[in-house]
Design a protein around this nucleic acid. Sequence first.
DNA 1: CTCAAACGGGG
DNA 2: GGGTACGTTTGAG
Length: 814
Amino acid sequence: MIEADNSKGQLVCIIDADYVLSDKEPLIRLWGKTKSGRSVLILDRTFDPYFYVLPKPSADLDKLVEAIKAMEIEGSKPTRVEIVKKNLYGKEYDFIQVFSNNPTDIPKFRDTVKHFDGVKEEYEYTIPFYRRYIINKGIVPMSWVRVFGKEIKTNADMDLSIEAEKIESIKEEEISEYPSLHILAFDIETSQAEGDEIIMISMMDTKDFKKIITYGNKASNVETVANEEEMIKRFFQLVKEQNPDMIVGYNTDRFDFQKIAEKCEKYKIPIILGKDDSHMIFRRRGRVSAARFRGRMHIDVYDFIENILEDSLSTEVLSLDRVARELLGLKKEKLSWKEIEELWKKGDIKTLGEYCLHDSLLTLKLAKNLLPQIFELSRVVGQTPFDASRMSYSQLVEWLLIRAAFNSNEIAPNRPKYDEMMRRRRAEPYAGGYVIEPKEGIHEHLALFDFQSLYPSITITHNISPEMVDCNCCEVETKVPDYEHHFCTEKRGFIPIVLENLVRRRIDIQKKMKKLEPKTMEYKRFNSRQYALKILANASYGYYGYPGSRWYSRVCAKSITAWGRYYIKNVMELAKKLNYEVIYGDTDSLFIKIKTKKAAKEFLDKANAMLPGVMELDFKGFYKSGIFVLAKSGVAAKKRYALIDEEGNLTIRGFERVRRDWSKIAKDTQEKVLLAVLKEESIQKAVLITKRTINKLKSGKVKMDDLVIYTRLTKSLSQYEQVGPHVAAARKMKERGITVKEGYIIGYIITKGTGSISSRAEPVSDAKDYDPDYYIHNQVLPAALRVLQGLGVTEEKILHSSGEQSDLTMFKKK
DNA sequence: CTCAAACGGGG
DNA sequence: GGGTACGTTTGAG
């Protein structure tokens, strides 16, 4: 049956996009699925890459156009050169649009053109071709299109391939659901003991397919092959057989696929996991290289969690077990590195297999849980889930703005050059949000109020946009508080318009949600979408101040925080005038001592009556009591708090996280302290645990194993300018004839004696004693205090108190 | 105080 | 299709 009926077109949801060069011409490929679940590849060869040139005002435009037309680089010439009117920061100019028939020509042409007489600047020469295409064609990933064209044959493993003649986007309102997708999760286990080998691979998909592959030992639940190489080949073969639409994993960009790539290089086997016959590529994108295969989207759930979701999680440790516990309520029995190697050595493949498969299961469940959120984010910014799931807040805002710019005939400003970025980074920090530091102690009967999206509201209300700063066109009615700038009140700025649109869409969705049952799929989809709209609006302030921003503007960023301080101070003054005590306030939220709901509502109404535009204060609820701590560390003040609500639920934030370069005794103590607080509901017990650990350290009875600190040598020994403890220990090892190289992880113990910490760092094998003071004050106490400080416990209290902390035991879960 | 260097996730 | 992390923490000097 041919579904590509040219009269009606084919309805396809676009999941991914890329391009290939075919006969030296770019061929755009859109990878999608129909409602009935058929996979469709759409090909389009009608789109040409281009960039813009801004001539100097003095330039002879026609002459410049001729010069650009005449240039020839490595046999390529521009295919078309046109003069177009476009806006840059709201002002219209004549731009020269330079087309090519090959995307790789664009940087070459740009490099040549920039030296031409009469050229002021070049623009939009770094927009990846497939992104340029979907933006210009109005195609939104994870949305539907109707494609008209003829069916063709390709080498891709798809149900249908269409050479497109016309592609129509379907409006968001018409179809908002997703096609059903076949998702496969996988996980690998490795062992450092035997040359860093991959010892096992497990898979699980949404069609009930499960598989564990290993080599060597046999077990009933696993498939055993001859060796590592065969196992990897078998993995590729199984992926091809199952032919899922997506592959998902946890930290697979940085770990699993890196390991697989290393091994494939060693065995000289190609990594073919896509739907065509192309190899896997690592697309460098800043810190992380994204593992990409064509036509089968790889989503690394961890990337998305690290970039975006972390802010809304209560766990501060992003390991698979902790994230799964929070989001799914599922526990992962965590095996340590050592335990995995022991199971492998013992040949207990059955247990190891179960463990490995369980990780695939958790990853699959996590993906099912998070993909709807990734898809909505993808829709809102108009980038593929592959890209959107790997973007930071700033990048998401940037791509949202680039698409909006195209739609309003604006040119996207360039990213800053390296020097400019460094200059921005070194710039003086400016005043941020207004903070009222809390008085020490426990505060009761707290009402929490916060501004609904304070910074986006300010941006919209006061028209904060770079091209609107200090205009000459209108009467200056309102200046930014304590700042010699004003924003135009006649015209609307580009960014406020974009934000207004986000806010309006969010309000519409929230209205629709009120009519739906919270359990329905539609409700959940809307909820994901309003969340996506919210985080993008909230990230826009940060984008003004982000050094890599295309729309960087310190004036805008400063003005936003200045207005923010102005409004929250106003609200605080109102509270004082009404004789309410403000206990704590930070940027956009404040805790006020109010006892009744009625009084809270009255206060809220009075506050909102004096706020302009879309600005609005919300009442978030009552807390029976709370403690707030402002832990000064360097320049920035980190906010930590512990709250107990009316139901008796305890919320603590800003406490966890000791890293791997901490000793086991510090990590264990922190974990026990946290458990005491959260599970056993006793701060007193937590203090006792810490005291006990300290006493044990003093007595000298702690096992040396628990004191080892592991740190990686990231360069060769001679290259170090600063000799940290691990470097000092490594140098001692070298002197004693042990090989140490870049990349090695050095284990050391801080021993007794005098001098710097480094000079007392001894390699594990040589350490005879340990310095209790160091482990108490630099390891155990900081780790425990990270949790306890927020609960009002100080170092002195742990060291000197008799253990009586009765004033704090009220912090209990019900 | 400034500056260099390491962490995260995975095993 | 030119994006070379990022924000935070620790210890040395």
